[in-house]
Design a binder for these strands. Sequence first.
DNA 1: TGTGTAAGTGTAAAATCTACATTAATAAAT
DNA 2: ATTTATTAATGTAGATTTTACACTTACACA
Lengths: 229, 229
Amino acid sequence: MLNSYSSVDKVLLAVDCIIFGFDNDGLKILLIQRDFEPEKGKWSLIGGFLKRDEVLDDAAIRILNTYTGLNDIYMEQLYAYSEIDRDPVERTISVSYFALINIENHNAELIQNYHAEWFPINDAPHLIFDHNEMVENAIKRLRYKTSIKPIGFELLPEKFTMRQLLELYEAILSKELDKRNFISKINSLEILNKLDEKDMQSSRKGSYLYTFNKEKYEEKLLNDFVLNL
Amino acid sequence: MLNSYSSVDKVLLAVDCIIFGFDNDGLKILLIQRDFEPEKGKWSLIGGFLKRDEVLDDAAIRILNTYTGLNDIYMEQLYAYSEIDRDPVERTISVSYFALINIENHNAELIQNYHAEWFPINDAPHLIFDHNEMVENAIKRLRYKTSIKPIGFELLPEKFTMRQLLELYEAILSKELDKRNFISKINSLEILNKLDEKDMQSSRKGSYLYTFNKEKYEEKLLNDFVLNL
DNA sequence: TGTGTAAGTGTAAAATCTACATTAATAAAT
DNA sequence: ATTTATTAATGTAGATTTTACACTTACACA
């Protein structure tokens, strides 16, 4: 094809996903053992290449779905990494995305087939290329987002206890929070439904389960607010 | 070249710059009248293509320098735009950058040669492709950044009055600010040097000129803070 | 029936934010 | 020399928000 752009260099465009999950052991990311060269066998973010007729967001969705079987996931574009030799094979620019998933929902079989594994964010292995940098930046963004949108909920099961919510926020911010102050701040957002049901796993007394109020929640998602924790 | 990536589609990668400036008439962006097809003659952001051996940040710096003659400019990568037909000629992904420049410093001749022009952000023309969307997102980012870093100063001349600083922040946030509260908040940051000199343009009494204290300033740039205006 | 464990709850002091009006300095006009 | 007009500079009290902090409750299990 000949046109006014014909003299311009073309490049490969990759998408790499920082997939966050949360369970009783804290905040985790999903990593994969690469099964092709270069760096075969090394740990890596889950990624892939942008296709000709695909938008970046869709590429990220496709890649996430391929490895986890999940749809309808909270994702957000982060940053384009373009160091010349970041991929030794060929000039490749990579756009990172972060995703928040409910760790209970993923397709465990799929994940196993791909040699994928959940790692605590503070105890992740060395990753290929610039993937560690991508993860660090994603954590920063997650912290920021947490302070202006109630996105933390994307990481929890449908019904959850206040303790779980507290621990999630503590894990994201990596600092201890005061239980009472936390609860009253969350309550002031008015996005939770307190159920009649209790979770009896964690204590004899049992703790109330909550869901979040979808309408209120989406209202809050629309307009930024400040959640000063 | 044949390698494990050989079946992957390649794309054009562009960089588009949202260049902010500030003067007595408020916040402005620098736009250019395209001198090549498609959309020749229409208003556009200043942009260009990434070269084979160039990092995105350097491409943005190069492009900015080409059109304004400026170096050492505050720039920041924003977002990758990838709609399939955003550029009708050929599949092009564009990474946007925003830049803050002191409007007095640019090379006016260069800008004229390129048919570039400053437009108030609230009175800019319709732009090609998705450039209006890029501008909107850039303004949002500028607002956010302003609240956590003292970057507003990049837009002012070396010596400036409190009134100028106030008006800059009002323009960025597009709301009125209380003068006394603003000044005491700025002072509490301790990043300004009050000079003995006065600016006599604006009043008979004259208003003190300030510069910013580079050391303190960079300290603040390092660690986020919250400037609640 | 007693015991151990986590759940649930309120307040007072400190810090921050907001709203608001008068005096000061000076150049220009008379 | 005096008046006038214009913008600069400055402080505080009340409202709101944030912080620090400890005891009681419910219940399963021994």
